[in-house]
């Protein structure tokens, strides 16, 4: 098992956001996580990579069989996790080229990085700009993905890779991710499910109010959510309880 999350309880500022999350992602598997706004999806991402603001109350996280619950962020990342953030900060004075070169160091061959940048349509001009400063929505996502792919991770965590992206950029991103995910694992968080036109996850989870309430076939779950919204999951949860 590549990633195992057991009974994860996480709070931020005294508020409990994750209330006992369990999840397992195997080698080469892509899982998708659905959930309404505020259900705790991004909190799970932050807890997985070890954001210091997200305090672990209970539970453990195992990655590649190692208990990483107490490990700092950079160490977890160096073990092979990579995250595409939904709203990354702007880094004035740090050029995209400099950051990509730094994260690619020792992990990805230079020609591999250049080809990947070309496929993601990241121009020389964009590489010379400061990270996320004045970038369009599509540029932000493409550059996020480029950085993470340069890190060559074993597990990709993609937080809303399809939000704020136009159709052309979505296709570009979707195709590149589909290719990359042929031989590695991923947890994809999506609100609208647009990215699933390109990715074929093996399993879906639904998160409501800080808990995983449903696991199953991604197409079936997405169809139900599209038809009935998250009320369906709510009912499903109630049915399970009863």
């Amino acid at each position: 098992m590549l990633l195992r999350v057991e009974n994860l309880h996480v709070e931020v500022g005294g508020k409990l956001l994750l209330k006992g999350v369990d999840m397992e992602i195997g080698e080469g598997e892509t899982h998708v996580l659905f959930g309404p706004n505020g259900s705790g999806k991004s909190s799970l991402v932050m807890a997985l990579i070890g954001h210091p603001g997200y305090r672990l109350i209970d539970g453990r996280i195992f990655f590649k069989g190692v208990d990483i619950t107490e490990k700092p962020i950079d160490e977890r990342i160096r073990m092979g996790m990579g995250v595409v953030f939904q709203n990354p900060p702007r880094l004035y004075g740090v050029k995209l080229r400099e950051l990509i070169n730094r994260v690619a160091r020792d992990r990805t061959r230079e020609d591999g990085v250049l080809m990947m940048l070309d496929r993601l349509n990241i121009s020389e001009e964009l590489l010379e700009r400061y990270v996320n400063v004045g970038f369009s929505g599509g540029e932000v996502k493409r550059c996020e993905i480029a950085q993470v792919l340069a890190m060559n991770p074993d597990l990709l965590i993609l937080d809303e890779p399809d939000s704020g992206v136009d159709v052309e950029n979505l296709e570009l991103i979707g195709k590149e991710l589909a290719k990359i995910l042929e031989d590695r694992s991923a947890l994809v968080i999506t609100h609208h499910g647009y990215i699933l036109r390109y990715l074929k996850p093996s399993k879906a989870h639904v998160m409501l109010q800080g808990r995983i309430v449903c696991d199953g076939d991604p197409d079936h779950i997405l169809n139900q959510i599209m038809r009935e919204g998250y009320r369906w999951c709510e009912r499903c949860r109630l049915m399970r309880k009863s």
Binding site: V83, P88, L91, R102, Q147, M151
Partner: peptide, 11 residues
Amino acid sequence: DQLFYLMARGI
């Protein structure tokens, strides 16, 4: 947030 972001790149 900038520090965290860079550390999330393994730095």
